[in-house]
Amino acid sequence: MTDPAGPRATPTPPTSAAVARRAGVSRATVSYVLNGQAAGRVGEHAQARVRAAAEELGYVPHAAARSLRAGRGSIVLLAAHADTVPVFGPLFTRFLAGFQTALHGLGYTVVLHGAPAASPVAAARAWAELRPAAVLTLHGPPLDAAAVELLHRSGTAAVLTHGPSAPPGAHTLLLDQREAGLRAGEHLLAGGRRRIGVVRPAEPGLAAFAEPRLAGVRAAAAAHPGVRVRPLDLALTEESAARLAADWPRWDLDAVFAYNDEYAMLLMRALQDAGRTIGAGSPDHIAVVGADDLLLARLLRPRLTSVRAEITAPDRIAELVDTLIRAPGTAPATHRLGTFHVQARDSG
């Protein structure tokens, strides 16, 4: 509906000069107070007046201008490609929340940014427009050397990409998904299982996690002659799980490692509905192992065995990013985000 008064002008944001006038102080005093540099320079009463004036006027400091004054950027960009659908488990979601909080405490603004993934350079060019101090790619296609160089030339001090390897000039953040599969495979083999299915999600955007987990199970099986490992594609729907359970006699599998606990619980219920028995107690039972160690999985009967990630405390990773921003010449290295172990329960 058209506004009868006509188009409205975009309001002019309040300035630090307006805050200074309202508080009866200098602009330098406003800058000290609102940028956390008032200690030893501005009295408590004046600080209170500045904060009250800023709140009354709705003044918010300009991040780009603050970065110019500080001589370095204040944006840490978490990159997610627009054509992928990242699905993180609750454990990793909690890590991201803690990571962002820790970075904010260090004075950074965290931006989650999607960009066209036509090429790594195209994505890097879109990110560079924000002049971030650091770029972290935690999901999606990896960057290449040209993209990393473009980011560095645009002023990005630190580029960190997900493992297992990184292009020249970038640091690696590694949560080795192959290790998750390796631990699951070793656990099932130690329990006498020799015909192992590995669930791969049919949903797009998860192959970067699922394929290394499959490779890990295969690596564990390589040390045991005669062991079979079969990939199983499963969509996160009851219909897909029912079809997989109906085909089970054709594959003659005695164990399954599912991509995560959600896929494991879905398949476990479908197998039980098809008359199969789940558990580690007998060779005639199907052993089921999930990943992420969700609370709900522990409430099932039988309780679900799961591969759990022990992730590095998010404040330590935030401190690492801060260190790399302050020392941009630091030689690229691999930084582990955590390790995996199996939480054994009744299902496998």
Rank of each mutant, 00 (worst) to 15 (best):
residue 154 S to H: 14
residue 154 S to W: 07
residue 155 G to V: 00
residue 155 G to P: 02
residue 156 T to H: 01
residue 158 A to C: 11
residue 159 V to L: 01
residue 161 T to L: 06
residue 162 H to P: 01
residue 163 G to F: 05
residue 164 P to I: 14
residue 166 A to I: 02
residue 166 A to G: 07
residue 166 A to C: 09
residue 168 P to M: 04
residue 169 G to T: 02
residue 175 L to Q: 08
residue 175 L to R: 05
residue 177 Q to G: 14
residue 178 R to F: 09
residue 181 G to T: 06
residue 183 R to W: 08
residue 184 A to E: 00
residue 186 E to R: 15
residue 186 E to N: 14
residue 187 H to L: 10
residue 189 L to R: 05
residue 189 L to G: 10
residue 189 L to M: 10
residue 192 G to E: 10
residue 193 R to K: 07
residue 194 R to E: 12
residue 194 R to Y: 03
residue 195 R to G: 12
residue 196 I to Y: 08
residue 197 G to M: 09
residue 198 V to H: 01
residue 199 V to Q: 02
residue 200 R to W: 01
residue 201 P to N: 03
residue 202 A to M: 12
residue 202 A to L: 12
residue 203 E to R: 02
residue 203 E to D: 13
residue 204 P to E: 03
residue 204 P to N: 12
residue 205 G to D: 03
residue 206 L to Q: 11
residue 209 F to K: 13
residue 209 F to V: 15
residue 211 E to H: 06
residue 212 P to V: 10
residue 214 L to G: 01
residue 214 L to C: 08
residue 215 A to P: 02
residue 217 V to I: 11
residue 218 R to Y: 09
residue 218 R to N: 11
residue 219 A to V: 08
residue 219 A to N: 03
residue 220 A to L: 00
residue 220 A to S: 11
residue 221 A to R: 01
residue 222 A to G: 03
residue 223 A to G: 07
residue 224 H to S: 14
residue 226 G to I: 13
residue 229 V to I: 09
residue 230 R to A: 13
residue 231 P to Y: 11
residue 231 P to S: 03
residue 232 L to K: 00
residue 233 D to K: 10
residue 233 D to I: 10
residue 235 A to N: 00
residue 236 L to E: 09
residue 238 E to G: 15
residue 239 E to G: 09
residue 240 S to G: 15
residue 242 A to H: 06
residue 242 A to S: 11
residue 242 A to F: 01
residue 242 A to M: 07
residue 243 R to S: 10
residue 243 R to A: 15
residue 244 L to I: 10
residue 247 D to N: 12
residue 248 W to N: 04
residue 248 W to Q: 04
residue 248 W to K: 06
residue 251 W to A: 14
residue 252 D to R: 15
residue 256 V to E: 04
residue 256 V to H: 05
residue 257 F to A: 12
residue 258 A to L: 03
residue 261 D to M: 04
residue 262 E to C: 06
residue 263 Y to G: 04
residue 263 Y to N: 07
residue 265 M to L: 13
residue 267 L to S: 02
residue 267 L to Q: 02
residue 268 M to T: 15
residue 270 A to E: 02
residue 270 A to N: 06
residue 271 L to K: 03
residue 272 Q to W: 01
residue 275 G to L: 09
residue 279 G to H: 07
residue 284 D to E: 15
residue 284 D to H: 14
residue 286 I to A: 10
residue 289 V to P: 03
residue 291 A to R: 15
residue 293 D to G: 05
